[in-house]
Write a protein that binds this DNA or RNA. Structure first.
Lengths: 191, 191
DNA sequence: ATGGCCATGTAAGATGTTACATGATTTA
DNA sequence: TAAATCATGTAACATCTTACATGGCCAT
């Protein structure tokens, strides 16, 4: 089955390549390893076969270079690769891009009714504490990127910051809603 | 390799089961098909094998019922299943639950520099318009769940609403930032 | 009775993870 | 020079998607 669209990771790799080219496969991989979002694992078994796939599809090319004793391949986009990247970004955006983004924390809190009151409070407390810590590192990222005058990097970091702050505010709302509700009953199920 | 943790989808299925049991595999599937988040595909090829897996692991059981001429299996959690579900929800939460959630829109806007100014504006306009439409349906969801006094359903919907609103505000920030920057240059790359 | 949706699957294939292998290079 | 890390992979496996198959049920 001839694939014509790009997956999320494939689109990202082409995008990273557009910014970094010419560069090695490993420096592409580093972008994902260094991302503040744990969603991007950047595992070798994902990146290297993916790059080989894109190369065979004619979206990128690799030119063998030799630096010192080490052979490494420098990657670059082909015209077809640039076109595929633009097509990936061009409207209309698919529903999954616009729709409610997945959030494993929101998912879990939807099943809070499973836990007895004590563990429920422990879960919320853990989430509140860890969120605050994590948010501080993102705040530092934003400050750094602003100082470096990296406009697009800054916008992405601001988006992440906004998402985390909104989630933090929502988390407080959840805590309030459960506290104000009578705490006498344990595991009430959704009607 | 003996898996001991649950994947996101497996945890969700156990959670849905806790709320709906006893119920059929299809009604579990419906929960995902009807979810407002397009992240949950609810494809048959994902759900049915997953349920069989959980059953073989002893986390749920299936009792064959016959309604009319149709045989269907009613699913329910086992004690081990309940324990696994609680363990999935119990702290410490893994990093991927706390960290910056993935957002395909944020990812794409990070590569805005790829597009020429005209297509860039088209992309942002499409995103703004579709976001507004989508947000209205989520708002309606919130109103409905509030009326139905479904506390946990309401909290999840409020979380989705908060995430979308934050994204909408951020999107406006992106539009402003790009408009205020001189528009003379086309595809500036990240330094 | 028939066309369409309900309900339950299965098969093939794409993609990603974990774990390992290998050699080069840097650092203590 | 020994250990750590860089850089590039590969193999086995798990999971999910797409597409199909099958039979029951329902409205016209």
């Amino acid at each position: 089955v001839r694939r014509t669209t790009l997956t999320e990771l494939e689109g990202c790799v082409l995008g990273v390549l557009h910014v970094l080219e010419p560069c090695t496969a490993y420096s592409v991989r580093r972008e994902f390893l260094d991302s503040p979002s744990p969603y991007w694992s950047g595992s070798a078994g994902a990146i290297y076969p993916l790059i080989e796939r894109l190369r065979r599809r004619g979206l990128m090319r690799a030119s063998t270079q030799t630096t010192g004793r080490r052979k490494s391949r420098l990657l670059g986009l082909t015209p077809a690769g640039r076109a595929a990247l633009r097509a990936w970004l061009r409207p209309p955006l698919p529903d999954v891009v616009i729709g409610v983004p997945s959030d494993p924390l929101r998912t879990r809190l939807g099943f809070l009714s499973v836990l007895p009151a004590r563990e429920r409070r422990a879960l919320l407390a853990d989430a509140v504490r860890r969120m605050a810590t994590h948010l501080r590192t993102i705040d530092a990222d934003v400050v750094r990127l602003r100082r470096e005058r990296d406009l697009f990097g800054l916008l992405v970091a601001r988006g992440a910051q906004a998402a985390l702050r909104a989630r933090q505010a929502w988390l407080k709302e959840v805590v309030r809603a459960l506290a104000s509700r009578g705490e006498r009953r344990g595991g009430s199920k959704r009607s």
